[in-house]
């Protein structure tokens, strides 16, 4: 039982990270019907920027660990959001009226650009996150002692997801984002500036992705320049699993994928965890082609 609960929590932590990244894919798909292939790389950029701020800028020495992590979270989220915003302006907006395929090619190009930029700037080796940041307390809940770090990742990702949901469902701008995703033309007739909304989505998605990058650094203690690809693929899978374009779907899909993976590693074999994860994806898509919460098929890239 202890083992099961620990694996479940581990799965939720990893799943929370997948979910945060998946939100970026799904929100962009919602408003532009485009898979932003560079999104995973923005997440990696977040992990690296976090590392730089913590190590090179000596933030970790100047502030208590908790404050340093919090500050870095906010700064990185803002910086990655800005990069996401610029990405849309430079790589996607000029192609808005061109065919969908042009935008896909542009997205792949942007992904390669970010990967190479990370490799050139930081080098192609694994980087270690400062480990004094890792919370070393444990919390005992119902007789299970839970590592503080695991709890931290779960709590942070859930808080961010709840905040996003509140924003989307209960604010005027959140409603405008949903409207643009449903019918851009009708949204324009409401007086909504669609370009502004798309920019906003490219701030929110990458901002959450950047935050997730730091969570990975803290949780696993190490990062590498290809993490954008591996996590990006998982998060993309999570978004499809939940129904691409659907925000709660990305959340559920991410958490589910994380838990399935954790269980597969624990009770089957670590080497098979990705295979099991994709097997689940295929199974769910056979039963529900639109994903768990989706209404439409992701028939277009």
């Amino acid at each position: 039982m202890e083992f099961f609960v620990q694996q479940l929590l581990n799965g939720l932590a990893v799943g929370g990270i997948y979910a945060l990244v998946a939100l970026g894919y799904t929100m962009v798909y919602g408003v532009l019907k485009l898979i932003n292939f560079a999104h995973g790389d923005l997440f990696a950029v977040g992990a690296y920027l976090g590392l730089t701020l913590l190590v090179s800028c000596h933030l970790a020495q100047m502030l208590p660990p908790f404050a340093a992590v919090l500050l870095v979270f906010v700064l990185v989220a803002l910086m990655v959001a800005l990069i996401g915003y610029l990405l849309e302006r430079v790589a996607y907006r000029p192609l808005r009226s061109a065919g969908r395929l042009s935008a896909v090619v542009s997205a792949l190009g942007a992904s390669i650009f970010f990967e190479n930029a990370l490799m050139l700037i930081y080098g192609a080796r694994v980087f270690v996150y400062p480990d004094f940041l890792r919370p070393d307390f444990t919390v005992t809940i119902m007789g299970f002692s839970i590592p503080g770090m695991r709890l931290l990742v779960i709590v942070v990702s859930i808080v961010l997801m709840v905040a996003l949901q509140v924003f989307m469902l209960h604010t005027r701008v959140g409603a405008a984002i949903r409207a643009v995703a449903i019918d851009q033309g009708a949204a324009r007739l409401m007086g909504i500036n669609v370009n502004r909304i798309i920019s906003l989505v490219f701030l929110i998605g990458p901002g959450l992705g950047g935050a997730a990058g730091i969570l990975v650094g803290i949780y696993y203690g190490q990062i590498d320049f290809l993490m954008g690809w591996s996590y990006g693929l998982k998060a993309f899978t999570a978004a499809i699993l939940g129904g691409i374009g659907n925000i709660p779907g990305a959340m559920v899909g991410g958490l589910l994928l994380g838990v399935v993976e954790a269980m597969a590693s624990a009770y089957f074999a670590v080497a098979w965890k990705d295979a099991v994860a994709f097997f689940v994806l295929i199974l769910i898509l056979i039963v529900r082609p639109t994903g768990l919460l989706g209404e439409r098929t992701a028939d277009k890239l």
Partner: peptide, 26 residues
């Protein structure tokens, strides 16, 4: 200038009230 377009184009997955409030976006 506001328009009620051909085919209505209401936001189907939003409530009646949310649709109306979006009309007053500005």
């Amino acid at each position: 200038i506001a328009q009620s377009p051909e085919g209505r184009r209401v936001f189907g997955t939003m409530t009646v009230e949310e649709n109306l409030r979006l009309g007053a976006f500005l």
